[in-house]
Write a protein that binds this DNA or RNA. Structure first.
Length: 476
DNA sequence: AAAAAAC
């Protein structure tokens, strides 16, 4: 099977060839001929299956006939996130370089002016996130009555994000006679209902993931305590000791944690950038670009980056937090091991994450192996000998002597918020110690921006490099 | 429980 057999125009075929592709992916082979015949298509496919090109290429071919009119886009593509929308735009730029088509990207976080000007001139392809699209529409600057083809991408994710009402509204604003291409990775009942409502006798095409997670992605769970400072330390050691680490995406559950971790990693000398939805759009784009082009090797991200992002060469994924939704786990680790490459996915798991880990293992159908030893903290987890003593509960290390009593040792802390008292200057972490470094009997609870402790602390990754050696109780 | 997306 070759692209030439699918009915694409010579211009498009030339652009595909220039990009170095010769063989269509299954979803492309199945969908493209139907799109060209102007059928509605229901594509059940994840990213990484070549789904984007499955609609971009035939759209380019179809759009060669006809011309855009002012304020009346001919085609409309809806994406759940700004980054995905921008990614689709890049696909049009790549494959449509010689087509002379005008493409506009309507996403939030950037000024209306340029977007408006483009729409007014007339665009062949409008790529949008729902909020900004409706905003333009409500301002009366955009007419959707000329849309011949509508693409709804990542529909199940739109559902997760509460976009379905917007999608339904938009579907009613475009002509009934339009062609609709609808892509989703899963088919929950709500999505089923939407497809029945808005697709006309669709051709259903399905593409399984190019390679299952099990075959190309090596997964592992890593024991950690649940306090962020402990996790950051564990992560640093994990990154430093990872083999074949080319670059990595590090996922956190919260935007605040993304920001903190990013700052901490930079402080520790890592080439890291952050990506989350509270950042301004310019920074988001810049971060993604610097990670894509290899300038930065670590991308600390919220789940905004969990799905769909096409960065073909990510060697590692680290889950700094265990994702709360099991399916997010699958999406996150799917950022590595792409295009037939090998990938590694490490998930930091604290005893408190047990439940979520179990849900993930149920979903993926097998147990994720642990790397190294369980931490001693797990023993007697429920006993919580000292927990009540502190005003704000946090995950205290359970072993005795971990957290010295107030005023007991040099670690005594004046302020509740971990404000560190003056401490002898410590060595920078870049000169981190080999695993044979003798462990400290007491623990440090370092503030994110504090220089790191010498050595590993008694609690950290003996498991990474050492043979099984249960931690001795700290000498009293 | 949190993320994303509109100002």
């Amino acid at each position: 099977m070759s692209f030439a057999e699918l009915g694409l125009s010579s211009k498009v075929l030339a652009a595909v060839a220039a990009s170095g592709y010769t063989v269509p992916t299954p979803i492309q082979a199945q969908a493209i001929p139907h799109v060209l015949q102007r059928r509605d298509v229901l594509g059940i496919a994840q990213t990484g299956t070549g789904k984007t090109a499955a609609f971009v290429l035939p759209m380019l071919t179809l759009l060669e006939k006809g011309r855009a009119r002012a304020r009346m886009p001919r085609t409309l593509i809806l994406e759940p996130t700004r980054e995905l929308a921008a990614q689709v735009e890049e696909n049009f730029a790549r494959y449509g370089a010689n087509s002379g088509l005008s493409v506009a990207l309507l996403i939030g976080g950037v000024s209306f002016g340029d977007q408006d000007a483009k729409i007014t001139r007339g665009v062949d392809v409008l790529i949008a996130t729902p909020g900004r699209l409706l905003d333009h529409f409500e301002r009366g600057k955009l007419l959707l009555t000329g849309v011949e083809l509508l693409v709804i991408d990542e529909a199940d994710r739109m559902l997760d994000m509460g976009f379905i009402p917007d999608i339904e509204r938009i579907c009613k604003l475009v002509p009934f006679t339009r062609q609709t291409l609808f892509f989703t990775a899963t088919m929950p009942p709500e999505i089923q209902r939407v497809t029945e409502q808005f697709l006309h006798t669709p051709i259903q095409v399905e593409a399984s993931r190019p390679a299952t997670a099990a075959t190309t992605i090596t997964q592992a769970l890593v024991h950690t305590r649940s306090h962020p400072a402990d996790k950051r330390e564990t992560l640093r050691h994990l990154i430093r000791s990872a083999e074949n680490l080319k670059n990595a995406i590090i996922f956190c559950n919260r935007k605040t944690e993304v920001a903190l971790l990013h700052k901490s990693l930079v402080r520790h000398g890592f080439a890291a950038v952050a990506l989350h939805g509270d950042m301004d759009q310019r920074s988001r784009m810049a971060a993604l670009e610097s990670f894509r082009n290899g300038e930065m090797t670590l991308l600390v991200a919220s789940d905004v980056a969990a799905r769909g992002l096409d960065i073909p060469d990510v060697s590692h994924v680290f889950n700094f937090d265990v994702p709360i939704h099991a399916d997010d786990y699958v999406h996150r680790i799917g950022r590595t091991g792409r295009a037939g490459r090998s990938g590694w996915a490490f998930t930091l798991a604290a005893p408190t994450d047990k439940k979520h880990v179990a849900a993930i293992e149920t979903l993926i159908g097998n147990a994720i192996p642990w790397t190294g030893d369980p931490l001693p903290v797990e023993e007697g987890e429920e006993e919580a000998p000292r927990r009540g003593a502190r005003p704000r509960r946090r995950e205290e290390p359970k072993g005795r002597d971990r957290e010295p009593a107030r005023g007991g040792r040099k670690e005594a802390r004046p302020a509740p918020k971990d404000a560190e008292p003056a401490r002898p200057p410590r060595e920078r972490p870049e000169a981190h110690k080999p695993a044979s470094e003798p462990k400290r009997p007491h623990r440090h609870r370092e503030e994110p921006d504090e220089p790191a402790v010498i050595g590993l602390g008694d609690h950290v990754p003996s498991f990474l490099l050492q043979p099984v050696r249960r931690k001795a109780r700290s000498p009293a």
